[in-house]
């Protein structure tokens, strides 16, 4: 593992560069294929509405995959992630237009732990609503 961020250089409260991730219907179709999750709530508006959703929603695991990029882009080496967990609190609703939805992710160092690891708390929102809860990663720094 070769993180490009040094443990000595971060402190509790250090903010990671925030990122925004666009997601359209095309994104969801591509993710469905790559992940093997073909649940129709992620691509079929008629089905999504039948089961009580406002519209097609993004895969929770897609949002989880985007959120950790704030951490992996920061440290450089994705293999430096030791733990990663989230709670799926609200769906990311993806309308059928040219814009789709946007997931905004920020992170900050919440604790310095043993063995050069730190805990990063992540915040992910879409349309102003938190979409992940208890979203945190432990990452090993240099």
């Amino acid at each position: 593992m070769t993180a490009k961020i040094s443990y000595a250089d971060v402190e509790v409260g250090t903010e990671l560069p925030a990122q925004t991730f666009p997601v359209t219907r095309a994104t969801l179709v591509q993710y469905a294929g790559a992940s093997g999750d073909f649940n129709p709530i992620h691509w079929n508006e008629r089905f999504a509405k039948e089961v009580g959703l406002p519209d097609v929603i993004a895969h929770g695991m897609f949002t989880m995959a985007e959120a950790i990029r704030v951490v992996t882009d920061w440290v450089g080496d994705p293999g430096a992630v030791v733990e990663y967990g989230v709670r799926f609190t609200r769906p990311v609703v993806v309308p059928d237009d040219d814009k789709g939805a946007v997931i905004e992710v920020s992170g900050k160092v919440a604790a310095k732990l043993d063995d050069n690891t730190v805990r990063v708390d992540l915040t992910a929102t879409s349309a102003g609503q938190k979409v992940l809860g208890a979203s945190r990663a432990v990452v090993r720094l240099a």
Binding site: G60, M61, V81, E83, Y84, G85, V86, R87, F88
Partner: peptide, 10 residues
Amino acid sequence: VVHGDQKFAY
């Protein structure tokens, strides 16, 4: 069924 939480330890 809906997916509530997900965690990984590597």
